[in-house]
């Protein structure tokens, strides 16, 4: 990283709005899950929203993003309607994937979000394809691929890093290192836990950054994005971050110390950013309260919409296996 990039007032507000909303969105989902209103599983991204917010706000419309699997923040900051995202997570017809994909497999190609998958590590090869499309079409668009520390022990990570560097693909790999692969600490998953260092083996820059430091994370991401956009090749960014909830909602979390969780929570970037927006005189207290109130209304409306939406019909469930009229 060279010098810290300055974040202008307009962007600071955009970051605050999206960070606040992503947090409330995640909290709302967690509450709904506890009340038994969500089928299947929920993998909370609370505590890790900042990266998705920065990407969602700063990427260009023609860039593709393969989101980190917990990152509802990416979808929301990219402009996906919250009602359609909640509906998808609830498995309803009005969801962004018609209620068939659900939380882990949600995508919205019209917002450049593609490649979500329930298989850890599988996103990287798919993201190579998105980057290759940009290269092939000679656009200045890029691809960004998010994944967790657990994905770096998959063969697909090694293959994809090598190929991206070899072909000079316009891609940024972003590893959100939250210190645990599901319920197992990093030190039990890999000998070398400095993930950014691995980039060197593939011939690309690798940079680690504190994911709770907005300015540092913003700067590192902007430099990697610019590098990809200018056809200087891929980068690996290791964002050191932390999830406040378990691997899944309901996880008893016996594998980690409560003090560790509290130490990260104490560094929460959300109130820091709120104070900054206020103290710099960008928004006053009333404006902040109004903004937050609007989001509460938006959330309530989105939840009500999703809950009132029908489940997919049998006809829906038998569609889209093939693009052509094909049956066994």
């Amino acid at each position: 990283m060279s010098e810290i990039h300055t974040i202008d007032e307009q962007m600071l507000v955009a970051f605050y709005r999206n960070l606040y909303f992503a947090r409330r969105f995640e909290e709302t989902l967690a509450d709904m899950f506890r009340r038994g209103e969500i089928d299947g599983w929920l993998h909370s991204g609370i505590g890790q929203e900042l990266v998705g917010v920065i990407l969602g706000v700063t990427l260009q419309a023609h860039d593709y993003i393969v989101p980190y699997h917990r990152s509802k923040a990416t979808f929301l900051a990219r402009g996906v309607p919250p009602r359609a995202l909640i509906a998808e997570i609830l498995g309803r017809q009005s969801g962004i994937c018609g209620g068939v994909g659900g939380e882990a497999h949600a995508a919205d190609v019209s917002h450049g979000i593609f490649g979500s998958t329930g298989v850890i590590g599988a996103a990287l090869p798919l993201a190579l394809g998105a980057a290759f499309v940009q290269l092939y079409r000679h656009t200045d668009g890029i691809a960004v691929c998010g994944f967790g520390d657990g994905a770096t022990t998959q063969g697909s990570f090694h293959e994809s890093m090598n190929l991206a560097a070899l072909w000079n693909l316009p891609i940024v790999f972003i590893c959100e290192n939250n210190l645990y692969s599901e319920m197992t600490p990093l030190s039990k998953e890999m000998k070398e836990t400095r993930i950014a260092k691995k980039a060197e083996a593939y011939g690309m820059p690798g940079i680690a950054v504190d994911g709770y430091d907005l300015d540092a994370t913003y700067t590192v991401l902007q430099e990697a994005i610019a590098r990809a956009r200018e056809n200087q090749g891929p980068s690996l960014i290791e964002v050191k971050t932390y999830r406040w909830h378990g691997h899944y909602e309901g996880d008893p979390e016996e594998y980690r110390d409560k003090n560790e969780v509290e130490a990260w929570r104490a560094r929460d970037p959300l109130p820091l950013l709120r104070a900054r927006v206020h103290d710099q005189g960008i928004l006053d207290s009333q404006q902040l309260l109004d903004l937050e109130k609007n989001f509460e209304d938006l959330l309530s409306e989105a939840v009500a919409f999703a809950k009132a939406s029908p489940y997919p019909t049998p006809e829906n469930l038998l569609s889209n296996v093939y693009a052509t009229n094909t049956s066994a």
């Binding site: 090869p125 190579l128 290759f132 499309v133 070899l166």
Partner: peptide, 21 residues
């Protein structure tokens, strides 16, 4: 030509296909 990386090259193909190639 690609490296000997079957998973990566098929995944690249899927991504490119999904996005219009």
């Amino acid at each position: 030509d690609t490296p000997i990386s079957e998973e990566a090259i098929v995944g690249l193909g899927i991504g490119a296909a999904a996005l219009g190639l």
